[in-house]
């Protein structure tokens, strides 16, 4: 007992992930999709998770909910949520947390809703499971939620099937479902990527407002640095299953330390300023089955030295709260 109390006291964070390792044991070999990721999140904060496709962002999100399907497995680390270790909880206990205290918004709204049930049924399912709402009450709440996420004439649309909605509308429905129980943490996995550019901004704004007014925290997963820069308090940058840079949004955006982060930032088209060729990070992400022993970015890095090939650079604090995993970051200017 004493132990848990201690942990609680110790943790000022809503979520504290330490050295999380999630591996996939495939036929071809082990994919270390998440390999020692640590980050933490304060109540009410928004954390941006950025990185190229395949770097392990979604797997990190699913790991927090313990929704890793075989052949994947969480191999190690700690996930402390509201002072409790999620990895020690039973499946039953997890069911009570999922969709209730932690909810998730998926990458692709087109496929996240069950095609054979009405929107109402899918919202009410959550309300029944976690809020104990039934019948008329649940119906009213569902309509209210739809209105909240900006769906016009929700009274009639609540009886629609998913295929009767556009992608943007569906994502709103999904947001409505994730907000239904006022969770303390929302994991939004690229909530706008699959949508039209015009809808993207609108929806992001709405999501931001709702999270803030709900006093929830959010992990915003994206490969779009410009998207997180405006909304998140902190940012972590992932590469090949590892965190290579993290810090407050401000410092990461304004003073990127890792050459990869720099590359990411340079690849963002700037609305202002003169036309300039977009920067591209050359080379390919290494084969997940044959990770180099040293820095995984080394094969693509312009700064690479002998040491990078041999030794993995540990995360170093280069200024208060700003960490980077590079042998040369902060030592040289580029």
């Amino acid at each position: 007992m004493t132990n848990i109390r201690e942990v609680r006291k110790e943790s000022e964070f809503l979520l504290d992930v330490r050295e999380l390792k999630t591996y996939f044991h495939t036929f071809k070999g082990v994919v270390k999709a998440v390999d020692g990721v640590s980050f933490s999140l304060k109540r009410g904060d928004i954390l941006g998770v950025v990185g190229e496709s395949g770097c392990g962002k979604s797997v990190t999100g699913f790991s927090v909910l313990r929704l890793i399907d075989s052949p994947g497995r969480i191999e190690g680390g700690e996930i402390i949520f509201e002072g409790d270790s999620l990895l020690k909880k039973s499946e039953r206990e997890m069911e009570k947390i999922r969709g209730n205290k932690i909810s998730m918004i998926f990458q692709d709204p087109m496929t996240s809703l069950n095609p054979v049930y009405t929107i109402k049924k899918q919202i009410c399912e959550t309300l029944e499971l976690h809020g104990g709402l039934r019948g008329k009450e649940a119906h009213n709440r569902a309509v209210e939620l739809l209105r909240l996420v900006g769906i016009p004439s929700p009274e009639s649309r609540v009886n629609y099937y998913p295929h009767q909605f556009s992608g943007g509308m569906r994502q709103r429905v999904i947001i409505a479902i994730s907000l239904a129980t006022s969770p303390s943490l929302i994991i939004a996995d690229e909530p706008t990527t699959a949508l039209d550019v015009t809808v993207q901004a609108q929806l992001m704004k709405r999501l931001y407002q709702l999270v803030k007014s709900n006093n929830s925290s959010m992990i915003l997963i994206t490969h779009d640095l410009s998207l997180v820069s405006g909304v998140s308090d902190n940012i972590i940058v992932m590469y090949c299953g590892r965190v290579i840079e993290k810090g407050s949004s401000e410092s990461v955006i304004s003073m990127p330390a890792h050459p990869y982060t720099v590359g990411l930032l340079e690849s963002i088209p700037k609305m202002t300023g003169e036309r300039k060729m977009l920067h591209q990070i050359s080379g390919m992400v290494p084969n997940p089955f044959e990770m180099p022993p040293g820095c995984s970015f080394y094969p693509r890095c312009e700064l690479g030295q002998k040491i990078c090939e041999a030794e993995y650079p540990r995360l170093r604090e280069i200024e208060e709260g700003h960490y980077v995993s590079c042998h040369f970051a902060g030592r040289r200017n580029f």
Binding site: L67, R98, S103, S112, L113, L129, I174
Partner: peptide, 8 residues
Amino acid sequence: KFAKAKGV
């Protein structure tokens, strides 16, 4: 997966 994430 989404249903599972809802706690079903």
